[in-house]
Design a protein around this nucleic acid. Structure first.
Lengths: 258, 258
DNA sequence: GTCAACTGCGTACACTGTACGAAGAATAGC
DNA sequence: GCTATTCTTCGTACAGTGTACGCAGTTGAC
């Protein structure tokens, strides 16, 4: 679900980092810093993108920059704050296109842009965002997402809930897809191979006839997709259902019949 | 998203553990084992429920049982297999009620039972389930979930996708709720306190007027719920939208008009 | 030239999963 | 009862983690 990391410290310090504002005038005496916030964030992003959050240790980031591990603590209070800045930074990659026309097209765009972002930076899926770092890109993202559902008859509360619903949906769908992709890599087995390795033992142990629906549906799905889980299809199916559901609410709001 | 843990080993050994089948006759010579699979799983569940998956280390589980850490490896090939058995065990807590009447009531029950389970065992949210351990309760759960959408006009593929959609939705909704609950505990601040601590600095740093929708909607939501995120409301809202979406599909299937 | 202020970073600590192998216990065969 | 065999328990070790502490060395003001 989440790493525990999030900048737990002083809001002033965190916000200064996120918006790249120096709170104090630069010190007159002493050596100039050899690194910068941006350099460290870039190095950390490179590692997280390539090898995952688990591989992004302070030592590894420092190595990447040819520095000692403790040096990073001159720039960030801790790993949590580094992660906060990484998050705000990649949110900056969102094109944030505002699609003209219907709200549904706009909300669809929100879902797809978020999906692309998660696929490009799968470590995002591990970052808790219930109290997001209030950097420029986090703010702009929320504003853009609200724009998609503004002026279509929803209340403010419904607007917020709808945006959260779409975000949550995309998060879950991509998590499932990425999990499936990673497990193939790690295990060196496709889903079909994995299944075939289990069936004979399962058959010997349990009464497979007790699960007739699972057997029927599992077989059909397996044949259709050559895998128990086809992520592309699942994403499209789920998004269509979700937007249909929102559609019903919007229709109800614009033409209430009771 | 996920801990990397899952029993990566030999299917025969994993399935034997899950179904509690001894593959070989019990050994004649040597001391009798002092522990049992069930004892270890019970201890591990107690720790995970109380303090989270992060606290559930092999050493801690062993301590709980008054044994040495390495002793556990006589019973489980590794931590992954222990987690597999834990997962199958808690799935056994699902009442798996089959609600009579409409499919929607059944699917609603599926969502709510899963929600209860996640709330009772939040560590479940951290366990990757793209290749679930094929134990008795995992199998029964899938069969029960398919029962909810059987015979309402969906194809096998749509049945599987619908069940996955509902499961994914519940996972995401509870994850968000649990995250919010935990962050309050850890930080000792309510969301409102946290927000109030940030606003003055934000105001000084950025141009808050650039985010008019966020300001308006954020304020309304904050007033309405006394928190940026009210999990009960969010769950109900999202589930209603989702089932409405499925409803549209089911209606289309039972009365195709094109 | 002196000194204060600053940066870089080595070391240390308490954790993790688990490979290895030694120590001890229980039984079979005599 | 004795020995050999087989099995269980678990101490130690290793390569990791985030980061507190404090020392060494650099820079610029006076």
């Amino acid at each position: 679900m989440n790493q525990d990391y999030s900048g737990s410290g002083d809001p002033a310090k965190s916000l200064a980092l996120l918006w790249r504002r120096e709170t104090n005038p630069p010190p007159a005496r002493g050596p100039k810093p050899a690194l910068s916030i941006d350099q460290i964030v870039t190095a950390a992003l490179k590692i997280a993108d390539a090898d995952g959050l688990g591989a992004m240790s302070m030592r590894r980031v420092a190595d990447e920059l040819g520095a000692g591990a403790m040096t990073l603590y001159r720039y960030f209070p801790g790993k949590g704050e580094l992660l906060d800045v990484m998050l705000d930074t990649v949110y900056g990659e969102l094109p944030r296109r505002v699609v003209p026309g219907e709200w549904r097209a706009r909300l669809d765009e929100v879902a797809r842009e978020n999906r692309e972002l998660y696929l490009r930076h799968p470590w995002l899926l591990q970052v808790a965002t219930s109290r997001p770092p209030l950097g420029p890109n986090v703010m702009a993202k929320y504003e853009w997402e609200l724009t998609a559902v503004e002026g279509i008859g929803l209340t403010d509360v419904e607007m917020d809930a709808t945006v959260a619903l779409v975000n949550g949906y995309v998060h879950g769908a991509v998590r499932t897809a990425v999990e499936a992709r990673q497990v193939i890599q790690r295990s060196g087995m496709t889903d079909k191979q994995w299944w075939l390795a289990h069936v004979p033992h399962l058959d010997q142990i349990g009464d497979l006839e007790k699960y007739p629906l699972s057997a029927r549906v599992g077989t059909t799905v397996g044949n259709e997709f050559d895998a128990p889980y086809d992520s592309e299809h699942a994403f499209e199916y789920g998004l269509a259902r979700l937007l249909d559901g929102v559609s019903a609410l919007v229709a109800n709001r614009s033409a209430p019949q009771d």
